[in-house]
């Protein structure tokens, strides 16, 4: 397989993932996109090994390694800080760890993370979801996705930095 064929395959897999995400949301099946994403990544990892004209050596490996390590060093601090904030919200909730609502009480799982007025009820009515705590849990996914995008941009930034440091775009008289 040629490098450009791999890029085309990666684009196709990306489009399939978008479709799977749409179907997951449409039918409220989180497992569909989760399993689909893992399968897509495994396919790309397997295809990557089949690239015949890939030029990679110790310098590019060093650049990748340094960029990955620098990304991790920044990312774990941010992720840990966000997680600590989330844990504070959880531990600070008046009824932690979420006993079933008493008769006559509103059924929210965490009073400090309430949805805007009417959103949970409207979603319930539309899809008949048994526990609106799941919807609020889903919002946690937005934060995780934002952090993952941050990690991606951090990696690209560090990759460019180290590539420049080790002469990736140097030109010569030849």
């Amino acid at each position: 397989m040629k490098q450009n064929s791999f890029y085309i395959l990666a684009g196709i897999v990306g489009l399939v993932e978008v479709g799977l995400f749409y179907l997951s949301v449409e039918f409220l099946k989180p497992m569909l996109i989760s399993v689909g994403f893992i399968a897509g990544v495994l396919i790309l990892y397997a295809a990557q090994r089949l690239i015949a004209d890939r030029r990679s050596d110790e310098r590019s490996a060093l650049i990748n390694q340094k960029a990955g390590m620098a990304t991790f060093m920044v990312f774990w601090v941010i992720f840990f800080a966000m997680s600590l904030g989330g844990a504070v919200i959880g531990f600070g909730a008046p009824r932690f760890p979420h006993p079933p609502p008493l008769k006559g009480e509103p059924g929210g799982f965490n009073a400090s993370m309430s949805l805007p007025e009417g959103v949970a009820e409207a979603t319930h009515a539309a899809r008949d979801i048994p526990d609106d705590g799941l919807i609020r849990l889903g919002y946690f996914g937005y934060m995780q996705l934002a952090l993952l995008f941050l990690m991606f941009f951090l990696y690209v930034g560090f990759r460019v930095y180290y590539a420049r440091k080790y002469g990736e775009w140097e030109t010569d008289e030849e």
């Binding site: 030029r55 990679s56 050596d57 110790e58 310098r59 590019s60 060093l62 440091k165 080790y166 002469g167 990736e168 140097e170 010569d172």
Partner: peptide
């Protein structure tokens, strides 16, 4: 040597120190 041209260039310019093996 089985490396990229960029690696040879980076070594020549002193931007990258090769491994002992290379």
């Amino acid at each position: 040597l089985g490396v990229t041209r960029q690696t040879v260039l980076a070594i020549e310019k002193g931007k990258y120190d090769p491994s002992l093996e290379l």
